[in-house]
Amino acid sequence: MSANDTLTTDRTLRRVLRRESHSPRTTAMVVSALIVVIVAGYLAVEAVLFLVGAAPLLIGPGALLQQAATLPEQGANAIVIAIAAVVAIIGAVLVFLALAPGRLAKHAMTVEGEAGVLVDNGVLASGLAHRISSEAGIDRDRLTVGVGHRSVDVTVRPDAGVPLPLDAVREIGERELAAYALHPAPKLVVRRGRIQGDER
């Protein structure tokens, strides 16, 4: 395989991994487009009715503009502020959806030096909990593992009076995460949970 073929394959693989690990904005785009189409269609119908001299469906364009211009004079500032706030919130949501990465609950696992396998965070959490449980001798029911994009939280709930080997749990967890070779590599956080049976 030539260097160009390898470069093309790497580029394609990165593109596929990014597409599969990020949430598409299809729903938000369809909803936004549908709202724009409905509003534009309504305004077009009102304009046509106004031009042919027919009665408007709700309110004609001229009357609408006149009412909008006289709202502040009528003391309806609260209505204007409420409409502006709703429009601002919708705009902020759309900007957030456009700029936010929208990551799915998956990590890329490095295989032979290349990130080529996507693994669900739930599968990672289950595998990590199993490894810690078997190596540290902790009952699986006393372990809670949560895998996020940037961190892995391991909470161990001990029985009353039973010593808790947090350092051993941390070492096992870090070794297992290193074996997974995740990209991006999450940070491991190990904490002591509430003692089993303690209702306070």
Rank of each mutant, 00 (worst) to 15 (best):
P56K: 10
V80K: 05
V37L: 15
V16Q: 07
Y42A: 14
V117W: 04
V154L: 07
V31G: 07
A136R: 04
A78P: 00
A98R: 13
A108H: 01
L94V: 12
I38T: 15
G60K: 06
A85D: 05
A168W: 00
L57T: 08
H22Y: 04
V154I: 14
M109K: 14
S134M: 11
L118H: 03
A78I: 05
D10A: 12
R19K: 08
D5P: 01
H107D: 01
R175V: 01
G137V: 06
G62K: 11
P165I: 01
A105Q: 08
V123P: 00
V117Y: 06
M109V: 10
A63S: 11
V156H: 03
I79H: 07
A92M: 13
L43A: 15
G148W: 06
L13F: 02
T27G: 08
A69W: 08
I89M: 13
T27C: 00
L71I: 02
Q196A: 15
T70P: 01
A3D: 13
R170P: 00
M109I: 04
L118T: 02
V30F: 09
S151L: 06
D153I: 02
H183C: 00
G60I: 06
G161N: 03
R175L: 05
G137N: 11
V37T: 14
V190I: 09
L43D: 09
G197L: 07
S32L: 14
V36H: 07
V30C: 04
V87Q: 09
L13K: 05
L64P: 01
S133T: 05
Q196T: 13
A88C: 13
R15M: 05
D167C: 01
R142A: 07
R18E: 07
V45A: 11
E176R: 04
H130L: 12
G62I: 12
K106W: 04
G148S: 12
R18D: 10
A178S: 11
Q67R: 13
E199A: 13
M109C: 07
M109P: 00
L17H: 03
H22S: 08
I35N: 06
L166Y: 07
V169A: 04
A115F: 02
E46Y: 05
D120S: 11
R18N: 06
P184Q: 06
I132R: 01
G62R: 14
D141Q: 12
A179C: 00
V154Y: 01
P158S: 06
D153N: 09
T6K: 14
A168L: 13
E171A: 15
G161P: 01
L51R: 09
P61H: 09
G122V: 04
G41A: 08
R157N: 11
T12S: 05
V169P: 02
A178N: 11
A136P: 04
G91K: 13
L43C: 13
T27R: 09
R142N: 09
G102S: 10
D141W: 03
